[in-house]
Structure formats: structure tokens, C-alpha cells
Design a protein around this nucleic acid. Structure first.
Length: 809
DNA sequence: CCGAATTTAATTTTT
DNA sequence: TTAAATTCGG
């Protein structure tokens, strides 16, 4: 291959090269885990621009997260900057000065990446809606303006709850807002509108939900707001309805690239079709000249069906988009099956596991690397022991490998709630970590409050935001007053803001709350004066100060208030960063970014921290070392999937995703008892997935390297425990497939219920080895005195102190 | 009529 | 353990 002219094909294997080199027509890239698909995507974009002279503004690339979008832009920038450096200076990138490197990158940003549309479906189509939403009118006459608010799941649910109770007089216990919201969301993600939903609704309950749907949509329009699903559904409606708009975007975006295609839903699929074929049935579409649709995915990694994703869309791609122009024998599918990431041991385990799924295209990941180490399985007594076992493992790894960075390690779990126990252990042992996911930064109460002010400023129809902040900080406006006004608002059919800000209405109230309302109205009017000539970051500060929010936090003077204040400072920083990254930074844009940001998006340049996250958030990432915890029936796989084969297969895919994140080492953990919430201990049976990994690939946690200090075993009541577990396993019917050499060990962290005796040897994370000399009190009020080697005795609370018992031998 | 205090219910995964 | 719902005091 000619190195000079085709640098973006360099170093690629045949299949990758075929993918990157693809120009016109549809192409499906079936990309197994770790097969270099991100590379194929970025290289293809670079290739399209440099070799096929495609204008960057004609490219639309869909990623699964904002983070992936940002990374793709960065990689692309680097790729292209290196290329022009080579042309202009004929120097390898590493010998180009930093100043010049930055000049090249800036130039690439101006000429290329700025014009590229790269982002999630939601981000891209909310951007499209900012342009064209005012050209859309719903069949029922519903309209929106470009200042629309984006409602998150909480906002959406509270609106639905309002409708269920106020408008429909239904019992929210029987019609749980959450479930109703879910049903509506599902409909929206399949492109079903209220009228069609009503027609196909079954039973009284179905009919009522259909009615909620219809009212909900009207309410959204009245608030000039869209939920996440609308960000996709409205563009579909708009593009179907308005030929001019459709043609414009069809002609603009000549090349579509979609990553993680297995996790698209029918609405997203519809969007792709509309843009690619301009509304023509794809089977009859033939104008592929200088146009392409390029999708990348792996059906085995489809893990978002709860969000209405359907991997049959991926499976149907070749049928949907037949390339009539392609030469005979030229297939429109490329398969990337060579895995460059993991050891063959890890791949064998993953392949074996996933082969238990019925519904899949046959595909096997081929290893390109060595065998590596065996997978280690550790069985623990409960979730606290499990956390301690994980930490113990990490400390061993650290002790044995000087080059190890904490950033090389990920701890993965099924549910966010599992992180807490692990965090506690990590804190005890002073290991730095970062939790990805869970509550988003933008979901914090104080942040949402300030954002609600901003939303109300630009979108006066937004009653949900208004209700949120009307009495925050406290202005003496109580429940009854609010109720009165929102009744008036819905009866008169005018936005709540107009009622609340009407001096007549306020005066009619008299006395107490009138004062607060008037103050509020003046505040909003005042802030609106700054709206058009103030940048987002300054506006945020204005809101925080003038609303009295900050002074209230200062007055409160608790640690919690201090934390909130820091978060708000962080919000200002986020807006400053947004302004830096976007030339035309406006408040609408910032609010959209905030609404669509996920916690997984935040930059984690932390090479010195262990990453904790759910299996879902780990999609697309890789780590040299992966610990997967909580492998128990009912937890992983989730109890909701146990009696549904299709869901169980999805859980298995999730497990497959987890295993294939690991490059070098994989550690699996499960407990035999687990507290669900608070205190109830429940027996746990090991996950069926463990029995689906060949036992010769797994070894039990026998070896206890790391010296006598870490060699410990609590013999007490161990035998009885083992017996009990054995019975459990036998009755569960899966024990025979379990790898039998998993050694049962107890990792006694400072768990309640650990019995301490004088003479016990312990290891403390800071003080080292010691021996228990006294025990004071018992039960909840226990404390123990420990004499540490080389220092005096310390009195500690064994339930809090970072100590572990050591077996004395 | 407002705001604080107490009780009660709830945990899958996320744009 | 936490967040929301309900009750109670001013």
C-alpha cells in the first residue's frame, strides 16, 4: 500500500481498510468488541474529507454518548493535524513544536471539525429542531418555538402525575406516574402518536393511558417543552410533513455514520431513513451517487432494549438498504472479527458465554493476543466482604506491579446502588476512585433550581420550571397559593407565569403571599432585562445572586450548604467551558447541553483513579484490569429477567460486554448473602453466567500472595457456613456447572457481627500490623484496643476503622 | 396557611 | 440509606 497517499488506510487490516475506504452506498460494519471500530469510524471520516473531498458540513455522525462524540472529534483533529504537519513540514508529529501542534489543531478545528455534526441522536436532533421547529405544526395544532425547554425524566413524570391527579382524577396509586410515563415513552420510541395509541389501546386501563398520553402531549406543547423522546419523534414528524425541510437536510447530509447501531430504536431508524432516502422507501432508493449510510454495530452488545432499542434493526440493515448500484459480488457488509483488546482466555470466556443466546448472528471473536492469565473467581460471604475482597485484590496487584496505575482498573456492577459498599472499602484503604454515573451533576437539586430559573427566563411558558422555583428560596408562597394559581392557569388556558405575574391576580390574594409573589415577579422581570446582552456564565451568576439563592446557602452555614455552593460554582465553570467550546454560545445551547449531558460524559483524565461504574456505562471502554462484582442470580442477571428468556439474553449480552472490557486480567466476585436495603440479609445463589464460562478458564482465589500480613482466614464458624451454602447450591440446580475450585473465604471487613477476641491479629491500612489487647463494650457499642507494631496502642471502632483480621500462624 | 418534623416506601440499566 | 409523602405545630 502506498504510504504517502493513503495514510488513513495505513496499519489497518483488510476488513478495516474496506470499511474506511467505503465511499458510496450503504454499508453495514459488524464490529465485535475490541475490533477497532472506533478507529474505523474516525479514519473513515478523515478519509472521506481528504481523499473523496467531502465537505465536512455534509457529514453527520451519530455516537452513543456525548463523550464518544467529543473523543471522536479530538481524534479526528489529531489525525488531520498530523497529516498537514507531514505535508507542510515533512516532519513526524512528535518533532513538531507544541506551539505549532496547536496551530495545526486550531486550523483543523476552523476548517473541519467545527462544521461536522457529531453527537448523540438527541443532541443532533435537538440542534436540528432549534433551526426548524417553528415550521412544524402537529395535526392537533400543537406548536413549539425554538426556545423550547427539554424536560428530563423527573420533569416528565411530575407533569404526568399532575395530569393523572388533576385532569383525570385518577388514583396515582393505581396509575403510577412512572409506569404510565414508561408506556408513553415506549409508544413515542416506536413512532406511535396519541391517536394511533388510542386506536390500539386495549381495555379501560389502556384507554385511560392513551388519554393521559394525549393530555401529556398537549401539556408539553403548552409549556413549550419537549421530553427526550420528542427530540427524536418531532423531527420524524417534521421531516415527514414538510418536504422543503426534509429536502434541505437530505441534501445537506450526504454521508451518515451511526455507531452502536444495535442500540437504535424505531424512531431513530425512521430518522436515518428520512435523511438518507428523503422519504423514499429504502428498497427502491438508488441515488447513491456521492452519498452513503454507514452503520457500525454488534448485535451481541445490544443492551438498551429497556430504552426501546431493537437489535433487529441492525440485523435488517442489509435488507433495508439494498445497494442496487453495487457491483455483483460486492457485499454491503464488512465484518470485523479480530479482537485486538483481550487475552484469548478472556475472549474464550466471552465467546462461550454468549453462545448460550439463541437470538444472534453467529460470530466469534478471534484472538490476536496471547493466552494471558486465568480468570479469578472469588466467593464472599456478603457484599461487605465482597468489597473488601475487591480491595484486597487491588492491593495485591499494586504490590506486585510497580507500573500499575489505578486508572488501569475498573470495577463494574449491575446496579448503581452497589457502588456504595465498594466506595466505603476504597475510602478505608485510601485508594483513589471515581464513580461514573449515578446521579448526574445536572440532577443535583441546587443545579436544577438554577437551571429552572434560566429556563423560565427564556421560556415563560415553562410552568414546570416556574413551579420548581416559585418558592425557592423561600418567599412565603405556600401550597395553597400555588394550587390556586395553577387552577386558574389551567382553567383560563394561559401559562402559569402570566397568572402569577398579573398584578391584579396578586392583589386579589391579599396580604401574606402577595408580597412574595410580587418580589418574584420583579426578580424575573429584572433578570430578563439582562437576557439578551449577557453571556450564559454571567447570567447564571446574576440568577444565583439576585434570587437570594447564594445568600441563603451562606446563611445556612452547614457542610451540606457549603457543598451546594461549590456545586453552583461548578455550574458556572461548566458554562464557561461551554462558552469556550462554542463560538456562538447562547443560553439555549447551554441549557440543551445541560439537559442532554450524562454523568458518563464528564472528562475523566484521571489516570490515578480506579473507575467505578455500571456495566451499561462501560460500553465502548476498555481497561487492563476489570473486576466484575455481584454475580448472583437476581442481581446479575436481574430478578426481572429471570422468568423472561428475551430479557435474560439481554442480561447475558450485558455480561458479555462486561467481560470484553478487560484487556489483561479479569476478576469475578459474588457473595452468598446480600443486604438488599438497610439490613435484611438475603441468601444469594451464584449467577448462571458463571456456569457458562468454561471452568478451565477460571481459578478460585487460592493463592494468597503479599506476605503473611494479608494471609488470613477465619476458621470460626466457617464449616457450618460452607455446609449451608452447599445445600443452597444443590437445591438451586446449578451447582454442578460451577467451577469447583473457587475457594470460600471470608473477607471480614469491619462488618457488623464480626466477633473480636483479645489476641486477634489485625492489619490496619495506615498503622500496619497489630494485636487486639482489650475489648470494650459489645454489640453496637463495641470498641477495641490494638497495639500496633512500632507504636503505642490505639482504641478504634472496629466497624469504622480500616482493619482486617489476619489469621495467626 | 406555611414550614418543619416524622413516617413511609422503595432500588435496573440511561439519552 | 434516601427521597417523597403525610402529619403536626406555629
Amino acid at each position: 500500500m502506498n504510504q504517502q497517499s493513503n495514510s488513513f488506510l495505513d496499519g489497518l487490516n483488510n476488513e478495516q481498510s474496506n470499511a474506511v475506504n467505503h465511499f458510496e452506498g450503504p454499508l453495514l460494519v459488524v464490529a465485535g468488541a475490541g475490533s477497532g471500530k472506533t478507529r474505523a469510524l474516525t479514519h473513515r471520516i478523515a478519509h472521506l474529507i481528504t481523499e473523496y473531498k467531502v465537505d465536512p458540513s455534509e457529514i453527520l455522525a451519530v455516537t452513543f454518548t456525548n463523550k464518544a462524540a467529543r473523543e471522536m472529534k479530538e481524534r479526528l483533529e489529531l489525525l488531520l493535524a498530523k497529516r498537514i504537519a507531514k505535508y507542510q513540514l515533512d516532519q513526524p508529529w512528535s518533532s513538531v513544536s507544541l506551539v505549532e501542534q496547536n496551530q495545526f489543531r486550531t486550523r483543523i478545528y476552523r476548517e473541519v471539525t467545527k462544521d461536522l455534526w457529531i453527537g448523540t441522536f438527541h443532541a443532533l436532533f435537538s440542534k436540528l429542531l432549534r433551526f426548524d421547529i417553528e415550521k412544524f405544526v402537529d395535526k392537533e395544532g400543537l406548536k413549539w418555538t425554538k426556545y423550547f425547554s427539554i424536560y428530563d425524566e423527573t420533569d416528565a413524570q411530575s407533569l404526568i402525575k399532575e395530569i393523572i391527579i388533576q385532569d383525570m382524577n385518577l388514583d396515582p396509586k393505581r396509575f403510577e406516574p412512572k409506569k404510565v410515563r414508561w408506556a408513553i415513552s415506549n409508544a413515542k420510541n416506536q413512532g406511535i402518536l396519541p391517536d394511533q395509541f388510542t386506536q390500539s389501546a386495549e381495555g379501560q386501563r389502556g384507554k385511560l393511558i392513551a388519554q393521559v398520553y394525549s393530555l401529556y402531549r398537549k401539556a408539553l406543547a403548552a409549556n413549550n417543552a419537549l421530553d427526550f423522546d420528542d427530540l427524536l419523534l418531532l423531527p420524524v414528524q417534521l421531516l415527514k410533513q414538510n418536504e422543503q425541510v426534509r429536502s434541505y437536510w437530505h441534501n445537506r447530509f450526504k454521508h451518515l455514520l451511526v455507531d452502536e447501531y444495535q442500540d437504535t430504536n424505531w424512531t431513530q431508524y425512521e430518522l436515518i431513513k428520512l435523511l438518507v432516502t428523503n422519504g423514499i422507501n429504502p428498497s427502491f432508493f438508488s441515488s447513491w451517487s456521492k452519498r452513503s449510510v454507514f452503520v457500525v454495530g454488534d448485535a451481541d452488545q445490544s443492551i438498551y432494549s429497556f430504552r426501546a432499542a431493537d437489535f433487529r434493526i441492525l440485523m435488517g440493515f442489509q435488507e433495508d438498504f439494498k445497494n442496487k448500484n453495487s457491483l455483483q459480488g460486492l457485499s454491503n457488509v464488512v465484518k470485523l472479527e479480530e479482537n485486538y483488546r483481550s487475552t484469548s482466555t478472556i475472549l474464550d470466556a466471552a465467546n462461550s458465554l454468549i453462545s448460550n443466546n439463541k437470538e444472534r448472528l453467529d460470530k466469534v471473536l478471534k484472538a490476536t493476543r496471547g493466552e494471558g492469565e486465568l480468570i479469578k473467581l472469588t466467593r464472599c460471604d456478603d457484599e461487605i466482604s465482597e468489597a473488601e475482597a475487591v480491595v484486597h485484590r487491588l492491593r495485591l496487584l499494586e504490590a506486585h506491579n510497580k507500573d500499575l496505575k489505578w486508572g488501569d482498573i475498573a470495577i463494574l456492577y449491575r446496579t448503581n446502588a452497589q457502588s456504595r459498599v465498594i466506595e466505603e472499602s476504597l475510602v478505608r484503604w485510601n485508594i483513589p476512585y471515581i464513580v461514573v454515573g449515578g446521579l448526574r451533576f445536572y440532577d443535583r437539586r441546587e443545579v436544577k433550581d438554577i437551571l429552572a430559573y434560566l429556563r423560565l427566563l427564556i421560556n415563560p411558558s415553562d410552568s414546570v420550571s416556574l413551579l420548581r422555583i416559585l418558592n425557592v428560596p423561600k418567599r412565603g408562597i405556600g401550597k395553597t397559593t400555588v394550587q390556586r394559581f395553577s387552577d386558574a392557569s389551567s382553567q383560563l388556558g394561559i401559562p402559569l407565569w402570566e397568572v402569577v405575574s398579573d398584578p391584579e391576580a396578586i392583589r386579589s390574594l391579599g396580604g401574606r403571599s402577595a408580597k412574595g409573589l410580587l418580589k418574584f415577579k420583579e426578580l424575573i422581570d429584572d433578570l430578563r432585562l439582562s437576557l439578551n446582552n449577557t453571556e450564559p456564565s454571567q447570567l447564571i451568576q446574576l440568577v444565583m445572586e439576585k434570587s437570594g439563592y447564594i445568600s441563603e446557602l451562606i446563611a445556612t452555614a452547614t457542610d451540606e450548604a457549603e457543598e451546594r455552593r461549590r456545586n453552583l460554582q461548578e455550574l458556572v465553570n461548566a458554562s464557561l467551558q461551554y462558552q469556550e467550546e462554542n463560538e456562538a454560545a447562547d443560553l439555549e445551547g447551554f441549557l440543551a447541553t445541560a439537559a442532554l449531558a450524562s454523568d458518563a460524559d464528564k472528562k475523566d483524565t484521571a489516570h490515578d483513579r480506579i473507575t467505578l461504574m455500571t456495566l451499561h456505562s462501560s460500553k465502548g471502554l476498555e481497561f487492563p484490569i476489570v473486576c466484575l462484582v455481584g454475580l448472583e442470580q437476581g442481581l446479575f442477571p436481574s430478578y426481572r429477567s429471570l422468568d423472561d428468556p428475551a430479557s435474560l439474553e439481554e442480561e447475558r449480552r450485558l455480561c458479555y460486554v462486561g467481560l470484553t472490557r478487560a484487556k489483561e486480567r479479569l476478576f469475578l466476585f459474588h457473595a452468598t448473602e446480600r443486604r438488599i436495603w438497610g439490613g435484611m440479609r438475603e441468601p444469594a445463589v451464584s449467577s448462571i453466567f458463571l456456569s457458562e464460562i468454561p471452568s478451565e478458564l477460571i481459578e478460585g482465589d487460592i493463592q494468597l500472595a503479599g506476605g503473611a500480613a494479608l494471609r488470613r482466614e477465619r476458621r470460626m464458624d466457617r464449616l457450618t457456613r460452607v455446609d449451608r451454602r452447599e445445600d443452597q447450591l444443590n437445591s438451586s440446580g446449578i451447582s454442578k456447572n460451577l467451577p469447583t475450585n473457587a475457594v470460600r473465604r471470608k473477607y471480614s471487613g469491619p462488618a457488623p457481627g464480626v466477633s473480636w477476641e483479645v489476641g486477634n491479629k489485625v492489619l490496619h491500612s495506615a498503622f500496619g500490623e497489630g494485636e487486639v489487647t482489650h475489648i470494650f463494650g459489645s454489640g453496637e457499642k463495641i470498641s477495641i484496643a490494638i497495639k500496633f507494631v512500632g507504636m503505642g496502642p490505639k482504641i478504634l471502632d472496629p466497624r469504622l476503622a480500616p482493619i482486617q483480621p489476619i489469621k495467626d500462624n
